[in-house]
Design a protein around this nucleic acid. Structure first.
Lengths: 130, 130
DNA sequence: CCTCCTATCAAGAATGATTCCTATTAGAGG
DNA sequence: CCTCTAATAGGAATCATTCTTGATAGGAGG
């Protein structure tokens, strides 16, 4: 009655995601893992990312430039997404759970998690633009 | 040297988006507008949505269930997205611009807008699940 | 009125990320 | 060992979105 069997590749995906401060896409992870697992298929990466997200071990940052991006850091924090280069930066959150509570009170639903994201231009892209 | 010529169809897309409290996808808008504009093509809806978003007249709520969703209400407010049925609900935001300021201070970038979104199960889907 | 010039548009092809399908493999437990 | 089940690769299929092309239309200036 094993529900989720241990998988070397899934663990490698999770480890890589946790060891890195950027917020990779499935394709980035696949390319990166290909050196250790030459027969890793992109489909396997997608399937395991979805499963890891369902288990709450990773978090989706949302779709940026057509690609879904993931974060191995599940502690609550905000994100800053550059509209030009797609870079994602972690930003600490000060506020407590007030939005979480407001939403549940106002909608009668159950909130699983809250994502706070700022969109704009990162310092790098501001320089290039200037 | 006219930069953006007036377009009946773009105005209809904007008007529909503003008249409605849900957060439609391009396909939803297209289906809805087809009664008034039988020759409206889906590509036209996509092109005009992108243009309206660039002009800041509408806002993208992000990709939900594989489809980008839009909001005609550009006043700052949060969203609650049901992971099961994809419904999007507006939720007022209490906090000020503190996150906005934090991001700019910490990253040196320029923030264009901040999106606060809660994910979970709406009241309806909670009932069905029960 | 007539003529450019430019923006809009439709239609459908092209793109590209993600998911689905199928046969194969590997590991755990008996 | 055997069996049963989940994991996997590979590739086909799907599907939202974008791009390309050619046609259309509306305004400015003659």
């Amino acid at each position: 009655m094993a529900i989720a069997r241990r998988s070397v590749k899934r663990e490698a995906i999770l480890a890589l995601l946790r060891s890195v401060t950027c917020h990779p896409s499935a394709e980035w992870l696949h390319a990166r893992l290909l050196t250790d697992f030459p027969d890793l298929s992109l489909g396997t990466v997608y399937r395991n990312l979805r499963q890891l997200a369902e288990e709450g071990l990773i978090v989706s940052v949302g779709v940026i430039g057509g690609q879904e991006r993931f974060d191995g850091n599940t502690a609550p924090h905000g994100h800053f997404v550059c509209r030009r280069c797609g870079a994602v930066t972690d930003v600490p959150l000060k506020g407590g759970r007030s939005f979480h509570r407001d939403v549940e009170r106002l909608t009668g639903g159950r909130v699983q998690d809250v994502e706070t994201t700022a969109y704009g231009l990162c310092a790098n892209c501001l320089d290039i633009r200037a």
